[in-house]
């Protein structure tokens, strides 16, 4: 039986770079989009420029940093309960 050649597109560093570049472009465009839509804000913070973008970024970093600290206290061996 002939083996199908393996698809290794995501393993190539050049392609990973393409994905990261695309993500950066999308993020930049989303900030530009701030100027082109009408905000009907319920809260004052929503009026800030790019509030959702910065809030998402900062909170995710804080989330991961906090989770790393949690590991110090909560992490045990895999067979801890056995």
């Amino acid at each position: 039986m002939k083996e199908k050649p393996e698809n290794t597109w995501f393993d190539k560093p050049a392609n990973v770079k393409k994905i990261i570049f695309a993500l950066c472009v999308i993020c930049a465009l989303l900030l530009v989009a701030e100027f082109f839509y009408h905000k009907h804000a319920y809260f004052a913070v929503e009026e800030w420029f790019g509030f959702y973008a910065f809030y998402g970024f900062i909170m995710c970093v804080l989330l991961v940093l906090a989770a790393k600290v949690m590991r110090v206290f909560l992490m045990r061996d895999e067979d801890y309960y056995d």
């Binding site: 990261i20 959702y52 973008a53 910065f54 995710c60 790393k68 590991r71 061996d77």
Partner: peptide, 27 residues
């Protein structure tokens, strides 16, 4: 905006190796 900047945060932390690696463990 919320989602793509979260993805950006993940990417940045993976590239800078801040993201906690997957470890065999019990929490």
């Amino acid at each position: 905006q919320l989602l793509m900047y979260s993805a950006l945060a993940f990417t940045v932390m993976m590239l800078w190796k801040i993201y906690p690696p997957e470890l065999r463990s019990t929490n």
